[in-house]
Amino acid sequence: MIFKIKTQIKKIPFLLPFFNYAYISIFKPLGIINLGFYTTIRTLRFSLKKNNIEAWKVSMRVSCHIIEKGLTMPERRLGFGLPRLANIANEVLKNKHNENLSEVKVAVGIIKDYKKVHEKSFYKLPEKISDLLERVEIMYPDLKIIKQLKLTKEQYFSSKNENFLKFSSSRRSIRNFSGKANAEQVQKAVELALKAPSACNRQVVKCHIFNDKEKIQEILSYQNGNRGFGHLIPQLCVLTVDLRLIGENEQNDIYFNAGLFAMNLSYSFHYYEIASCMLNWAAPPKRDKKLRKILNIPKHESITVLIGFGIPSNLIDIARSDKKSSKESIINN
């Protein structure tokens, strides 16, 4: 439509400058606003609908992962996450019809592991919690305990020179650190990560690296996913995207491009024997503005994701974070 109008206007030369001004100042911004409005409405429409099996499975996976993380924290606090654990147990008990789902099997295995860990430490759980866990064990006596992983640093990096199948399967989020990676390791990792695909080869992602402990703690105080281990993170990478470099109708693409780079960077870290953990940035505008001020980044850059990294401990506790099957992810059309 705009193209047709512009074609007609070209026949009237003195109108063309006015049309170009109106397009850049009015029509183009309105198109971007329309895309943002469209995305927001769709998010509101569907993200609030939780009464379906897929939402239930995701809720279980999230809850179980929180317990997994607690079991593998470098400074594990016994008796952690009791409200969350009770919720998982109750969901398992009242949804017997979902017993064949992997989410139920994982939940039961984690419940048994939680119970075993506390028994070994002679920690007495509250009676109501103990009763709940006991009921789950009685309902599912044949499901095995799912223990979290414990590897040495050498074991963790043992597949870094193997084929991609073994290499990619060996990389996991690490929350146990012993020190900082040196500048050369970090530079090489970033150089390798830059091989990631980039829309139209724009390469809009910037890596802000922080090594100062106090600064890192200040930054992490605005991020909600580092409780229990954030104070031990020795280095931090904040990925941003330069908004001046994206095209029209591509504001959602900033997270796509940053995601591609972030995954490649985590693989690159793994190759250069640097442990890392993704820390999502999902914050309201007020908190986003505060962090941008603390980071002292240019106004035209948007924060997309944080990555904690460093040299891992000699003995690493790792959350299993079992993945769903490919059958659940592939839709043949």
Results as ranks from 00 to 15, higher is better:
residue 138 I to R: 15
residue 130 S to W: 06
residue 223 Q to S: 13
residue 8 Q to N: 14
residue 255 Y to Q: 04
residue 302 S to A: 13
residue 43 T to D: 15
residue 209 I to C: 00
residue 19 F to N: 02
residue 306 L to K: 00
residue 324 K to H: 00
residue 149 L to E: 14
residue 125 L to G: 05
residue 158 S to K: 13
residue 25 S to P: 03
residue 207 C to Y: 09
residue 238 V to C: 00
residue 85 L to C: 02
residue 86 A to D: 08
residue 118 H to E: 01
residue 146 I to M: 13
residue 308 G to K: 05
residue 68 E to K: 04
residue 36 G to Y: 13
residue 87 N to H: 11
residue 322 D to K: 15
residue 49 K to W: 01
residue 59 S to G: 13
residue 180 K to Y: 06
residue 241 V to R: 06
residue 28 K to Q: 11
residue 191 E to R: 07
residue 311 I to T: 04
residue 248 E to D: 14
residue 81 G to H: 08
residue 230 G to Q: 10
residue 37 F to G: 07
residue 215 K to C: 10
residue 224 N to Y: 12
residue 252 N to H: 14
residue 83 P to L: 08
residue 81 G to T: 05
residue 207 C to I: 03
residue 157 F to G: 01
residue 143 L to Y: 14
residue 289 K to Q: 15
residue 271 Y to H: 14
residue 21 Y to N: 02
residue 123 Y to A: 05
residue 75 E to T: 13
residue 103 E to R: 02
residue 183 A to P: 06
residue 28 K to Y: 09
residue 265 L to K: 01
residue 204 V to Y: 00
residue 147 K to W: 10
residue 219 I to Y: 06
residue 201 N to T: 06
residue 10 K to D: 07
residue 280 N to I: 10
residue 155 Q to R: 13
residue 218 E to W: 03
residue 235 Q to Y: 11
residue 90 N to C: 08
residue 223 Q to C: 12
residue 280 N to F: 11
residue 305 V to K: 05
residue 184 E to W: 07
residue 43 T to G: 14
residue 122 F to A: 15
residue 125 L to M: 07
residue 170 S to A: 15
residue 133 L to I: 07
residue 17 P to H: 03
residue 162 E to F: 11
residue 76 R to G: 09
residue 146 I to K: 14
residue 117 V to N: 06
residue 268 S to P: 04
residue 114 Y to N: 07
residue 237 C to R: 00
residue 181 A to V: 06
residue 333 N to H: 12
residue 74 P to H: 05
residue 198 S to M: 08
residue 241 V to N: 05
residue 149 L to Q: 13
residue 242 D to M: 03
residue 307 I to Q: 05
residue 34 N to R: 15
residue 47 S to C: 00
residue 241 V to P: 00
residue 194 L to T: 09
residue 102 S to I: 10
residue 33 I to N: 13
residue 330 I to G: 03
residue 311 I to P: 04
residue 191 E to C: 02
residue 108 V to H: 09
residue 325 S to A: 08
residue 304 T to D: 04
residue 51 N to R: 03
residue 177 F to P: 05
residue 113 D to L: 03
residue 100 N to P: 00
residue 108 V to D: 06
residue 311 I to Q: 09
residue 286 K to E: 15
residue 76 R to D: 09
residue 246 I to V: 11
residue 139 M to C: 10
residue 127 E to L: 12
residue 16 L to E: 09
residue 124 K to Q: 13
residue 104 V to E: 00
residue 195 K to G: 03
residue 74 P to Q: 02
residue 221 S to H: 12
residue 176 N to S: 12
residue 150 K to P: 07
residue 131 D to L: 14
residue 62 V to Q: 09
residue 209 I to M: 08
residue 214 E to C: 04
residue 39 T to C: 12
residue 176 N to I: 04
residue 67 I to W: 05
residue 172 R to Q: 13
residue 265 L to V: 04
residue 218 E to R: 10
residue 127 E to V: 09
residue 243 L to Q: 09
residue 291 L to S: 01
residue 110 I to K: 02
residue 159 S to K: 15
residue 329 S to L: 15
residue 210 F to Q: 10
residue 202 R to Q: 06
residue 172 R to F: 04
residue 319 A to E: 08
residue 104 V to F: 02
residue 65 H to K: 02
residue 100 N to C: 09
residue 323 K to Y: 12
residue 12 I to L: 15
residue 129 I to G: 07
residue 138 I to Q: 15
residue 253 D to P: 04
residue 169 S to E: 15
residue 35 L to D: 10
residue 58 V to H: 04
residue 74 P to F: 01
residue 222 Y to W: 11
residue 170 S to Q: 11
residue 127 E to M: 06
residue 50 K to C: 01
